[in-house]
Structures are given as structure tokens and as C-alpha cells.
């Protein structure tokens, strides 16, 4: 997320219905704003899904996005999380080149980041890391010199801290 000028997080509860993802994405797209990450998954109620959207937009526009999202009939709740203390997490799978000489070195780095090795061959190692976007970014940066073959990131998921609902 280091290359983002403004990363604004919006959490959206939607009815789990066909086309909702397109409506939400389309609403953001047509305002000329890039979606940095978008994660969707079920909530405690299977008829309701939560989308966590990170958009590249100025902070003063984030509330306008949330308001526009609330106008969608299937959107039950849309919250701009920028001014709220919240827990952010992202998961990444990273497949990195290894040689007998670098294997231990990489595992040491993984230990520092509490990443785990989820797959290993004589040429590659696949690591799983969880944390805030910045932590994942830092981990990725350190692995770059070994040669990252491929990577998949889930995008950020967020919940507000404390007893208050997101």
C-alpha cells in the first residue's frame, strides 16, 4: 500500500444478492477512482456479506463514497473507517525462489514476521503472512531479492475496535 496517495477504507454490509458486487464496484469506478483492494465474504448472518474496500481517494471524498453506497438498495450499511480506530488485516501467499544457501535465511525472515511456510520444493518456498498492509509490504520487500515467483494478497479486511459495530 506504500504507493497509494490516499488509502481510504470503507466497510460495507450488503444483502447477499446477484449483482451487488458490480453495483458497488461500478459506483466507485464511475467516479474515476481506483479500487486498491476489495474483499468480500459472509458475515455472521449468511444472507449478509461484508465488503471491505480500500480506495485511492482524498479523505474528504470518502464520506461521499459511503453516502453514495448507502443509496444502493442492497447496501445495508456503509462506513468510512478513516477516523475510527480499527483492526486491519491482510493475508498474503508468496512463492519465493530458494536455493540450499538461502533457505534458512528466508526462514529466519519469516520467523520475524511470524509468517509460516505452507509449501516447499527444492526450488521454491511458499509463505503465508498475515498482518496490516504495511507489514505485508515490508515482508514482500525483504523477499524481493530472492526472486518472488508469484504472490496473492487477499486485500484488507477491517473491523472497528471495541464493542462498537463497524
Amino acid at each position: 500500500m506504500t504507493d497509494l496517495q490516499h488509502a481510504a477504507t470503507i466497510s460495507v454490509l450488503v444483502q447477499n444478492a446477484p449483482g451487488v458486487l458490480v453495483r458497488v464496484a461500478g459506483l466507485i469506478r464511475r467516479r474515476g477512482v481506483n479500487i486498491h483492494s476489495l474483499s468480500v465474504g459472509p458475515t455472521e448472518d449468511p444472507s449478509i456479506s461484508r465488503m471491505t474496500i480500500v480506495v485511492d481517494t482524498a479523505p474528504e471524498r470518502t464520506e461521499q463514497f459511503a453516502k453514495q453506497l448507502r443509496k444502493l438498495v442492497e447496501v445495508l450499511r456503509a462506513t468510512s473507517l478513516d477516523s475510527t480506530p480499527a483492526v486491519d488485516r491482510e493475508l498474503a501467499l508468496i512463492k519465493v525462489n530458494v536455493t540450499p544457501g538461502t533457505r534458512l535465511e528466508i526462514m529466519e525472515i519469516a520467523n520475524v514476521f511470524r509468517a509460516s511456510v505452507v509449501d516447499l520444493t527444492d526450488k521454491t518456498m511458499t509463505l503465508e503472512v498475515t498482518g496490516r498492509g504495511e507489514k505485508v509490504d515490508a515482508f514482500v520487500t525483504l523477499l524481493t531479492k530472492y526472486g518472488i515467483r508469484e504472490m496473492a494478497r487477499t486485500g484488507q479486511v477491517t473491523l472497528v475496535r471495541g464493542s462498537q459495530n463497524t
Partner: peptide, 14 residues
């Protein structure tokens, strides 16, 4: 048509 009219309707449904 529901795809095309998504941004120009308050709501649409198939």
C-alpha cells in the same frame, strides 16, 4: 440490460 442500466436507474432487477 440490467448491466447496462445499473448506473442510470435507482434500482433494476432481472
Amino acid at each position: 440490460v440490467t448491466g447496462i442500466t445499473m448506473p442510470i436507474t435507482k434500482y433494476n432487477t432481472l
